[in-house]
Nucleic acid binder design. Sequence first.
DNA 1: ATTTAATTATGACTGCAAGCATAAACTAAA
DNA 2: TTTAGTTTATGCTTGCAGTCATAATTAAAT
Lengths: 210, 210
Amino acid sequence: MIDINLLLSFGASYKKVAANDIIFNEGGVCSYYYQLVKGRVRWINYTNDGKEYLQSIIEAGECFGELPLFDAGGYAATSIADVDSILIRLNMSAFTQLLIENPEIHFKFSKLLANRLRFKFFILKEMAFNDPAKRVNALFHYLRDGKKHICLTCSQIKLTRQQIADMTGLRVETVIRVVRNMYKNGELKIVRGKIYFNVMTPVIMSEQEY
Amino acid sequence: MIDINLLLSFGASYKKVAANDIIFNEGGVCSYYYQLVKGRVRWINYTNDGKEYLQSIIEAGECFGELPLFDAGGYAATSIADVDSILIRLNMSAFTQLLIENPEIHFKFSKLLANRLRFKFFILKEMAFNDPAKRVNALFHYLRDGKKHICLTCSQIKLTRQQIADMTGLRVETVIRVVRNMYKNGELKIVRGKIYFNVMTPVIMSEQEY
DNA sequence: ATTTAATTATGACTGCAAGCATAAACTAAA
DNA sequence: TTTAGTTTATGCTTGCAGTCATAATTAAAT
């Protein structure tokens, strides 16, 4: 997202985290701007009865936990390293200073926020009325088209059915049945656990490159 | 949101719209920054099968349709005047210029975007796992606490059951039953159609003043 | 190669929201 | 005040996601 050398020149530092380490907690006071250099991060909300809602998967190159930097609230979700990861972080006041000195980067961030908001609009609409199959489909499209620039050569989806369930508000069993069904209909291939999503249904929404 | 005189100095103009007039359509190319001076605006997504999801109700003083200004996509939802309204609009390039010349307003907008994103995080989590009663409750809390600064003296909610259904992804009948039930439990009063929401359950999330 | 754990799979049952129909109670207009 | 239109109310039925139980399969660890 932000050039690493620029971050370093403002005093940013690297940090290693192991798989399943908590980076920050929902509601926690914001201290840093975070950017993922290597690895993968889960961004999760816990409901009062312990279920977890997976708001987003952060891939290398993306930033996360940026909301409090702007509105001075707590972190909107808990972030957990999905695998061993390296991240770079910059303390809050230095981040603000960086934006002031580099207005074009501030515009880049507005774009980022707008994009993320746009995706939430989309996914919320999908969640509100659609049946399970469409929800899962919407998520796949997002992962393929919305994050293409970051992710992968093609359209592999490397989430467990449980994680898909966590992102769509469905139960594992339901997701398993839906995916199974899509597989039977030839809408996707499964090779060694990975889902290869390769149907050419129209793209409804995409989180553009930023 | 932005001071009206400042907007005017950048060439903004007033516009009157009648109830149910469409201000802009989902997906449409962005031409203006909009700010509501008087009235009320519905912000809606239509699903392919004609159902509408009410993303937000815009009250006087709030801005809307700001996403495309930052990320150059289309409008994220259709906006329709709920009642006769007056709005002020500023063309896109002038808006950008305004932000460049007034970095503090740009920060204000980042805060706004962050806030709106935060609310979507919240409502999405609620929608994903909660039962109907909790969904409606979450919406009520948002309308009371999140929008207190704009709305009303107290905690009236002037939405029809249909509109509540449109915001929670439930059906009218379900909402009617839920509200009826809350009424019976003394969780709210209904005076001439308006819902007076007056229970002191802890505030989970609030869209802060901006 | 063998054990252990995690993930995927599938059937059976249940609860409850959706959907439909229909009526009552408001509201606004004439 | 009457009329027409909207909103709220309620019973009944059905479908299907959720839940539980249990098994099969795959992946990871020893």
